[in-house]
Amino acid sequence: MAIKKASFLNLCFAVAAAGVLAYVAGYRPFGLGPDFPNYEFFYDRLGSGSFSDLTSQFRFEPGFLLAAQYAKVILQLDVMGFVAVLMFVSIAIKLYCFSGLKYPLLAFLFYIFAWFPVHENTQIRAAFSISLMFLASLQVFKGRWAYFALLSCGAYFFHASSLIAAVVLLVSYFLSRFGSVFLSMAVVFASAILFYMFVGVFSGHFMALRASYVDAVNAPTIFSGVNILGFLFLVASYLSGSIDTVEKRTYFLMACFSFSLLFGFYNFPVLAHRPRELLLVFMAFIAFDYKLSYRTLAQAVIAVALAGWVFYRGISMGLFSG
């Protein structure tokens, strides 16, 4: 009886938390933020045309286009209602994915402070796509490859960059199962050299890609607070011995890959920033999934500092204003 009561209370908390955060993401009580006007512009011009009309008029992925059209034409939601519903589902999925961790509430709070400002509150397509990739990662560990493929496809149709997450997830899982952590890390960071060489071979194509993103012409800041704290967290986690399961090693290596891609594509910002943002978020699964002790104190403190720093930077960059 006590277990059922606890489960019910956990469910109530999850629904309430998802509802409050979805309201913030959809109805913008603190301000529109930098990206929301673009979604308003798109939603206002969304009609009841065919699927081919949608894909020819708008640059967004087909899954997002269909969801937006259904919300506007069938459900008759305004853009804020549509975003609120979509982000409620996104947050609820993440809460479910964290529920199996040692400290699910701490993992959820880490995600909210570190990634909610830039994802659910700003990049809503990426936020929903990542939630599906979170689910997909759980299917990998259970050997449910058909579900993994289905969820990965769903994520791709909401944000194309999720393809990177799917590939890195599989590679990290393979390395986690068949190699030591040290050997796996060596493979991951050696890949930075391969990425750099790859860019050199296809530099003409990537220069054209860079030119198409006029808002991302500056090289990434290697020694930013996020990068420094994220790297220190990985080091502390490795030294503490808390990366002791296939699941943890997989997420650990995905975070390592985020830095590998950052270094490898340093001269091509759009290819450096996006994968780092996409992959580093999987750190939420290992931020607090260990027994809190003197041995793991350093990584816990660094995780709190990372979440606090990213949240502060989100506010100072105007992600909750405008």
Rank of each mutant, 00 (worst) to 15 (best):
F108T: 08
S191L: 14
E61L: 03
D244Y: 08
G154Y: 04
V15G: 06
F64R: 00
L77R: 01
Q299T: 12
V226K: 15
F268N: 09
N218M: 08
R45Y: 10
Y196T: 10
V140M: 12
G264P: 05
F174C: 14
R295W: 09
A18H: 04
S212F: 10
A186E: 11
V181F: 10
S50M: 04
L319Y: 12
Y294D: 10
S260N: 06
T250L: 09
A17D: 03
G204C: 07
A25W: 00
A107H: 06
R274A: 01
P62G: 02
N121I: 03
I74E: 12
S212K: 10
A22Y: 03
A17C: 09
C153H: 08
A300W: 04
E277Q: 14
A300K: 00
S176G: 15
Q139F: 13
F195Y: 11
Y173K: 08
V217I: 13
F98L: 05
M185N: 15
S56G: 11
T221Y: 13
M207I: 15
M1E: 14
W115C: 12
F158I: 00
M1I: 12
S176R: 04
L163C: 04
V85R: 05
R295I: 09
I93Q: 06
F141T: 06
V24M: 04
S191D: 07
F60D: 07
H205T: 15
F13M: 07
S176A: 13
L253E: 01
L229S: 03
F82C: 02
L54G: 06
L105M: 11
I130M: 14
V214M: 13
L169W: 02
G264N: 04
A219C: 08
A300D: 02
S161L: 09
A2E: 15
F141C: 10
I243C: 05
G230V: 00
A165Q: 07
S52L: 11
R313W: 13
L183A: 15
R295D: 11
C256I: 01
S242K: 13
I130R: 06
G322V: 08
I91L: 15
P29H: 02
F268H: 12
F8K: 12
P34S: 02
P104L: 07
E40H: 09
D78T: 01
G19C: 05
Y251V: 01
A16W: 06
F282D: 05
S316R: 11
A136H: 04
F257T: 02
C153Y: 12
A303Q: 03
D215R: 12
L232S: 05
S321C: 10
S258I: 03
A298H: 04
S137I: 01
A84D: 00
A190G: 15
K291W: 12
L280S: 12
Y173P: 07
Y147R: 13
A236G: 07
K291C: 15
L32A: 09
F182E: 14
V217W: 13
F263R: 00
F157P: 06
M317E: 15
M87T: 05
F268I: 15
F30Q: 02
M207R: 15
V281N: 03
F311L: 11
I112T: 14
A25K: 00
T245V: 07
L278S: 03
L77T: 01
D244R: 05
V188M: 03
L66M: 09
L209D: 10
